[in-house]
Simulated scan of single mutants.
Amino acid sequence: MMRSVPHHEPQQARTNGSLTEVAYEALKERLVLLDIEPGAPLSEQSLSAELAVGRTPLREAFKRLESDHLVVTYSRRGTFATPVDITALSEISEIRRVLEPLAAGLGAVRADAEDRRHLEKLRDGLAALPADTSARDHMEWDLQVHRAIYRATHNAHLETALVRYGNLATRIWSVAAPRLADVGSHIVEHIELLEAVRGGGSERAERLMLEHMQAFEVRIRTVL
């Protein structure tokens, strides 16, 4: 259970904490989807103004992003987006092939009413995607689907681990996407997966997720 903020905690500490989260989430998505290019510098001054956060919460966000292997900070040089390590695909895939089906199976069993409503909304959204949806938007949908399934496990440790490895895998996919013939077909696979998790079919959900993971790796390797 998350610790509630004590009433005696200074207001500035609470404010900095919430602003750190704002900066962290905003930068994480840009780094994962390569809106911030690998190797690009992250300017504290410009980001502080753009995100409307102070230097202290921004630096705290940088620390969290560094632990996620999304940025690297050098003394006297600054903070930079990490390169995309394509060679790490095998190691990342080994972990995801085990944990992703586990999450799908647990999510099918543990999802509450709110989870199932969200999964249904994602399923309907995917089914209505227009044919001209960009590769980047497809990848954003992919992140949303996987993260919704992680949340449905109600296992914070599993969710944290999967978000981290999913982010790293998405960065590799973002490099490969321009050379893939049909990114959308990979995302459409989620419709059946979402129905399985939402409907409580744990074995089917596990099987579909494993097949999805295997297909993902094969697709990436064809263009890398």
Results as ranks from 00 to 15, higher is better:
Leu126Glu: 02
Leu193His: 09
Val183His: 10
Arg30Asn: 07
Leu162Trp: 06
Val5Ser: 06
Leu210Asp: 05
Ala52Arg: 14
Ala111Tyr: 04
Asn167Met: 00
Met1Pro: 10
Ala104Ile: 06
Thr15Gly: 14
Thr73Asn: 08
Leu27His: 11
Asp182Pro: 12
Leu33Val: 10
Glu50Ser: 11
Met139Ser: 01
Ala127Lys: 01
Ser202Cys: 00
Ser90His: 12
His69Pro: 00
Ser174Glu: 03
Thr133Lys: 02
Glu60Arg: 15
Ile191Gln: 09
Thr133Asp: 01
Ala40Pro: 02
Ala148Ser: 09
Pro83Glu: 05
Leu168Pro: 06
Thr170Trp: 01
Thr56Lys: 15
Ile36Ala: 00
Ala161Asp: 01
Ala131Cys: 04
Pro57Arg: 06
Ser67Arg: 15
Ile220His: 03
Asp182Ser: 14
Arg221Trp: 06
Tyr24Gln: 08
Tyr165Ile: 07
Glu120Arg: 08
Leu27Cys: 10
Arg97His: 07
Glu44Arg: 15
Leu51Thr: 07
Leu180Ile: 15
Leu180Thr: 13
Val109Glu: 08
Arg55Met: 13
Leu168Val: 01
His138Cys: 11
Leu129Thr: 07
Leu58Thr: 10
Arg96Asn: 02
Val98Pro: 02
Pro130Asp: 00
Glu206Tyr: 03
His138Gln: 02
Leu193Gln: 12
Met139Asp: 04
Leu58Ser: 10
Glu140Val: 06
Glu25Asn: 15
Leu42Phe: 01
Arg97Pro: 01
Leu19Ser: 02
Leu34Arg: 08
Ala81Asp: 02
Glu189Arg: 15
Ser18Phe: 15
Ala113Arg: 05
Ile187Asp: 04
Arg136His: 02
Gly54Glu: 03
Leu58Trp: 10
His118Asn: 11
Val218Leu: 02
Leu89Trp: 01
Glu94Gln: 10
Val71Asp: 06
Gln144Met: 13
Ile95Cys: 00
Thr79Val: 08
His186Phe: 09
Arg3Met: 14
Ser134Leu: 03
Glu140Asp: 05
Ile172His: 05
Leu168Ser: 04
Val197Met: 02
Ala23Asn: 07
Leu34Met: 03
Arg207Asn: 12
Arg207Gly: 13
Leu51Asn: 04
Val145Asp: 01
Ala108Asn: 06
Arg136Trp: 01
Thr15Asp: 15
Ala88Pro: 00
His118Cys: 04
Glu189Gly: 13
Pro57Val: 08
Leu168Ala: 07
Glu37Lys: 10
Ala176Asn: 03
Val188Pro: 07
Phe62Met: 06
Ile149Gly: 00
Met209Trp: 01
Met213Thr: 12
Arg198Met: 01
Leu27Pro: 03
Gln45Val: 14
Val175Lys: 04
Arg204Lys: 12
Val183Trp: 07
Ile95Asp: 00
Arg204Trp: 01
Tyr24Lys: 10
Glu25Thr: 09
Glu195Phe: 07
Ala127Gly: 10
Gln12Cys: 13
Ala127Leu: 05
Thr170Ile: 05
